[in-house]
Design a protein around this nucleic acid. Structure first.
Lengths: 218, 218
DNA sequence: GCAAAAGTGTTCTCTGTACACCCATGT
DNA sequence: ACATGGGTGTACAGAGAACACTTTTGC
């Protein structure tokens, strides 16, 4: 047995990718970085990297999320594991995360220039990252319907209108205000805090908080 | 850099596991094999094995499924990728499959002695395979509600009663015959073949077939 | 007083569920 | 004739969708 390329070894290069979502300015966005090396130099791609010795997949994904956004206590879940994103036969475990845009601070001095892109207006992506993003968007939309994952996209307190805007941005359609409120309240996942958002020349809005700031499935 | 154990290499051992389901004698069952080597010698475990050079994950899972059951053209889907099933830091990509018990022929001369076990009466499993099975059962139950995956558990033609028994075995509860038929027919995934099952001292049953014998999501 | 967003109910349709009897066949 | 599984319809309840006006505040 020759000890040369990975394609003849019994072991494999294993990488982690992270699809980091946020909702900002009424749009669902993901974080992309610009590749500084070949292959696909100067193309945009999902943040990711090699799995280090003794890393679990979740640890590697968490670390990469923190490097890019500075946050760790957010929703983060495995998405799918690909074995055909490149020609080298490496394995890529994709994760997805949801972050509040006001908490995520992108380190803009980094050489890979992280940037938020609206998912309905993405640039060409390196490798087959476009497939990964599509898969992640589908999973997010499904999960929104039967879990409280939206907690991870909002501040601790928020108005019902803000929550509705998050849902509308993710699902890509507008909803009826009365039906949305009825449904969310009947799910019993949020509660009024008693405080009000007193800003703007209009009636102040009741502030709400999620009862659980961790994943709950209905 | 030392070339010794996998825990100090940048590459990883990658394995594939397969949770192979069937429904037989009114019970949801999975295929287990008896380990012939340490660790966990003589314990039961899920079939699996190393990812060979140039294998994709799906190829490795398909091959393992064929070795165990002789079938390949069945429902097979990735489940989850684990990095903490053993202490060696290896990566295990779990898949799940659905097979018709009449087509799966277990090679009973194999040293690992494959056997069907009812999921509600499993023996102690090696590694953390119990978690994997639980996860697969949950996924199967969910998927049953919004896809046609049951096609892969039945012969090409079947009666509505046989189909209902499959659903009841998977979900672990009995259903009303009239409501079941109404719902399945309204899903528009099966059609009558015009032939009848003329066996038994009772009225012959209309035979049905799935319109698509490949995964369709509603 | 006016602009802007907050807040609130009713009606209808559709889906899921509960429930019981006759039919065709083999022995 | 009887035992066995095959086959069928109706009524009720709950969920989701459509739809418009009043309230509170800042300016």
């Amino acid at each position: 047995m020759t000890p040369d390329a990975s394609s003849s070894s019994i072991e494999r290069l294993v990488a982690v990718l992270v699809v980091i979502f946020t909702v900002e300015a009424g749009k669902l966005r993901i974080l992309l970085i610009r590749r500084s090396a070949d292959p696909f130099k100067d193309h945009w791609s999902l943040p990711g990297g090699r799995l280090l010795p003794a890393d679990s997949l979740a640890e590697a994904a968490t670390r990469r999320l923190e490097v890019e956004t500075g946050v760790t206590d957010v929703f983060l879940e495995q998405l799918y594991t690909f074995s055909d994103l490149d020609e080298a036969g490496s394995i890529a475990a994709a994760y997805w995360a949801l972050v509040d845009p006001n908490r995520a601070k992108l380190p803009d001095r980094l050489e890979w220039q992280p940037r938020w892109y609206a998912v309905d207006d993405l640039p060409d992506l390196a490798f087959l990252n476009g497939n990964v993003v599509q898969y992640a968007v589908t999973r997010l939309r499904n999960k929104l319907a039967y879990s409280n994952v939206a907690y991870s996209l909002l501040a601790a307190e928020f108005t019902l209108s803000q929550l509705q805007q998050v849902y509308e941005a993710i699902l890509g359609r507008s909803m009826d205000k009365r039906n949305f409120r009825k449904r969310i309240i009947s799910l019993d996942i949020i509660e009024p805090t008693g405080r009000f958002s007193g800003q703007g020349r209009h009636r102040p809005a009741q502030l709400y908080a999620f009862k659980e700031r961790r994943p709950v499935v209905f």
